[in-house]
């Protein structure tokens, strides 16, 4: 297996365009697992860990820009994130334990494209734009268009994730990240969710479909009525229809559907 370590972003993009079939290695917390077990059989690796140009977290007017190589710990401890997007830090705190958070990157969580990726519902609920870079240039993709199917992304073979552009949440906004996992730490989600209520409701889930999903039907219903206990019950009923979970070694479809409703109910009760 060939191993390429680009010195900077330009070199990384050049390598990726020359070797579109090589696997990109960021923190390696997912990729190395697959390499070690022999599941990932790539011709080569492009190690982009530590490329500073795409590891920064910064403000840009009404937006927060999070570099793809920002580690989960960086996000958890970042002042801007805690001020303008605290829910993302809440989600990152539930991914793996300290060792994984110190090494794993937010871009890796996205590009790994697991339907159980805990940060993904947050990006969906916040209508994130994602910048993809290649030697040819850059393009912006709406995060909700990024997942084409189970572990399939809209990224081209020569593209790298560069950053996530998210509108800062406003003062009056209510939000929550909720997760039901297999144990109390280092757990993989059975269901995770990000809920928002500002001018309108935004509802996003992980682990309940082949990709992370937004629940537009439920959102539309909630946006069109006064939220009282009756509306909450109806929203819970709708959201349980809207998710399409399955049985696997971590949980059952039946339980996941139930919990998806419970989490939404809890959010609606809190707002």
């Amino acid at each position: 297996m060939e191993f390429l370590s680009p010195k900077n972003l330009n070199e990384a993009l050049k390598f990726k365009s020359e070797h579109p079939d090589f696997t990109v290695l960021a923190g390696g917390t997912d990729a190395c697992t697959l390499i070690n077990s022999g599941i990932l059989k790539s011709k080569g690796l492009i190690n982009i860990y530590g490329i500073k140009e795409i590891a920064e977290i910064k403000e840009n007017g009404d937006f927060l820009e999070i570099g793809a190589l920002a580690t989960l710990t960086q996000i958890i401890e970042n002042r801007l994130v805690s001020k303008f997007l605290p829910v993302l830090a809440m989600a990152c705190k539930t991914i793996g334990a300290r060792q994984i958070q110190n090494r794993g990157t937010i871009g890796g969580n996205v590009m790994n494209a697991s339907p159980a990726g805990d940060a993904l519902p947050v990006f969906l609920a916040y209508e994130t734009k994602m910048e993809l870079l290649s030697a040819k240039g850059s393009r912006l993709v709406l995060f909700e268009k990024f997942y084409a199917g189970y572990r399939k992304t809209a990224a081209e073979a020569d593209e790298l994730a560069a950053k996530f552009i998210i509108k800062k949440c406003d003062d009056k906004e209510r939000f929550a990240f909720m997760k039901v996992g297999t144990r109390r730490a280092q757990s993989i989600s059975k269901v995770c969710a990000c809920f928002r209520q500002s001018s309108s409701y935004k509802i996003a889930y992980g682990s309940v479909a082949p990709t992370p999903i937004r629940c537009y039907v439920t959102e539309k219903f909630l946006n069109g009525c006064k939220t009282d206990a009756f509306a909450a019950d109806e929203a819970v009923r709708l959201v349980r229809q809207e998710v399409s979970p399955m049985d696997d070694i971590r949980s059952t479809a039946n339980y996941r559907r139930h919990v998806a409703g419970v989490l939404l109910k809890r959010f609606l009760e809190s707002v």
Partner: peptide, 10 residues
């Protein structure tokens, strides 16, 4: 960090 999922190349 976990040294089993870091490659020497990194």
């Amino acid at each position: 960090v976990n040294s089993c999922i870091i490659l020497f190349g990194q």
